[in-house]
Amino acid sequence: MRIERVELRRIRTPMRFRFETSFGEETQKETILVSVHADGLAGYGESTAMSRPVYNEETTSTVWYVLERFLIPLLFSREISHPDEVSELFAPIRRHFMAKAALEGAVWDLWAKRQGIPLARALGGEKTAIDVGVSIGIEPTVEQVLRHVDRFLSEGYKKIKVKIKPGFDVKVIESIRKEFGDGVPLMADANSAYTLEHIDVMKELDQYGLIMIEQPLAHDDIIDHAKLQRELTTPICLDESIHTVEDARKALELESCRIINIKVGRVGGLTPARKIHDLCLERGIPVWCGGMLEMGVGRAHNIAVTSLPGFTIPGDTSASSRYFERDITIPAIELSAPGTLAIPDGPGIGYDLDEERVRRITVDHAVFRRPH
């Protein structure tokens, strides 16, 4: 497969509401949309980097720079017979996982379209639908969180994830349990906001029957998480600490966690995501697909990877309408049944790009052509 052209678009659109985590708050979505072109077909990828380097070191601006200066030239340097080769091609570039994932995902979509098969099947998935959950940000009051939980349970979401931080943690979890009972599939996401000095808070959370506590300690830690996991009944899930299959292997050998959140952008693409999935499946460790407030293209990639058998916990890929008045795909990502997303059966990601919408929210655009 000889990639003829790559297009980058920086797009920006307001979100329907303020979304707060321990990193800060988001009120608009800015992302890089990538398209790769060959033989009259286009494949699409979406960067999951934020506009500020608070989740990891990448931003939308660094993603654009690395794509333009390094990754696109590498992609033009050879023909691709299978998308797995893209990760190998990008290996000399250290980290910059979200930039790599955006371009690699677009190649996967294009390759699947050329084969005439859904991206999910190209990856080896066999599911026809996936269960999904929803993520609730930090709110000014516990009562507002309870209202969100009530609404999302009524919409059938299969897992409730609540963001926590020091001072907004035990009370909110306790209140959810009192209001809705122990049967609600509930987890807490700390986004690295705690240290081992907060072990008493973690032990208090341990009594509420949570599915997991996600990334309570430092973003680059697997040592202290192992110490904490030994003190808790609740499984710890690692997110920010896992970037490669080697990170996952070491964390599992140290018993730093009992669950891993696989984010395609964080680990550098669909091929690395599948490798981490395969390792966890072999070790009997459940995985799930986390979200980065993606728009429709990124959500479509999440749906595809979640079709793999090891994804047994509902992910964060809720309906587009949760975050955006209008998405960039046709159709928008919507629930096919309460708490369920159908896996598209069309070629590639299975969604068309809403080109008029994309043009309207584009703030920067560049085209790169393969040198002759």
Rank of each mutant, 00 (worst) to 15 (best):
residue 201 V to Q: 09
residue 305 V to G: 05
residue 331 P to T: 10
residue 209 G to I: 05
residue 342 A to E: 14
residue 256 S to L: 01
residue 45 G to R: 06
residue 39 D to A: 15
residue 314 P to N: 10
residue 258 R to L: 10
residue 269 G to M: 11
residue 29 K to I: 03
residue 97 F to P: 00
residue 202 M to V: 06
residue 286 P to H: 11
residue 338 P to F: 14
residue 155 E to W: 13
residue 313 I to S: 09
residue 99 A to Q: 09
residue 145 V to E: 10
residue 231 E to S: 12
residue 321 S to E: 15
residue 137 G to N: 01
residue 151 R to C: 01
residue 346 G to Y: 12
residue 231 E to N: 09
residue 6 V to L: 06
residue 109 D to R: 05
residue 206 D to M: 04
residue 246 E to G: 02
residue 4 E to H: 09
residue 115 Q to L: 13
residue 343 I to P: 04
residue 170 V to H: 06
residue 1 M to Q: 06
residue 15 M to K: 04
residue 332 A to V: 03
residue 305 V to W: 07
residue 107 V to C: 05
residue 32 I to M: 09
residue 369 R to M: 12
residue 173 I to Q: 05
residue 117 I to L: 04
residue 354 D to Y: 12
residue 235 P to T: 07
residue 81 S to T: 15
residue 25 E to V: 09
residue 58 E to F: 03
residue 33 L to G: 09
residue 328 I to H: 11
residue 334 E to A: 14
residue 367 V to I: 15
residue 11 I to R: 00
residue 94 R to H: 13
residue 238 L to D: 01
residue 89 L to R: 07
residue 233 T to C: 08
residue 241 S to H: 06
residue 226 A to D: 00
residue 197 E to A: 14
residue 243 H to E: 11
residue 128 T to D: 14
residue 167 G to P: 05
residue 175 S to D: 11
residue 171 K to E: 15
residue 147 R to V: 12
residue 112 A to F: 04
residue 362 T to E: 03
residue 310 G to P: 03
residue 218 A to H: 14
residue 178 K to I: 00
residue 220 D to Y: 12
residue 183 G to Y: 10
residue 317 T to M: 14
residue 269 G to S: 11
residue 111 W to L: 00
residue 130 I to R: 01
residue 368 F to G: 08
residue 75 L to E: 03
residue 139 E to C: 01
residue 135 S to M: 09
residue 23 F to L: 13
residue 73 P to T: 08
residue 186 L to A: 03
residue 84 D to V: 14
residue 159 K to Y: 11
residue 232 L to Y: 09
residue 55 Y to I: 11
residue 155 E to T: 00
residue 114 R to C: 01
residue 87 S to A: 15
residue 104 E to M: 07
residue 11 I to N: 01
residue 313 I to P: 04
residue 174 E to W: 02
residue 366 A to W: 07
residue 47 S to F: 06
residue 280 C to K: 08
residue 311 F to R: 08
residue 158 K to M: 06
residue 14 P to K: 07
residue 28 Q to R: 14
residue 219 H to K: 15
residue 159 K to D: 00
residue 39 D to I: 00
residue 287 V to T: 15
residue 123 L to E: 08
residue 63 V to T: 14
residue 367 V to Q: 08
residue 319 A to F: 04
residue 301 H to W: 04
residue 240 E to D: 05
residue 28 Q to H: 14
residue 57 E to P: 00
residue 194 Y to D: 01
residue 142 V to N: 10
residue 156 G to L: 09
residue 340 T to G: 00
residue 29 K to R: 15
residue 191 N to F: 08
residue 174 E to G: 03
residue 295 M to I: 12
residue 260 I to R: 02
residue 221 D to F: 05
residue 47 S to R: 02
residue 166 P to E: 11
residue 138 I to G: 05
residue 145 V to F: 10
residue 239 D to Y: 06
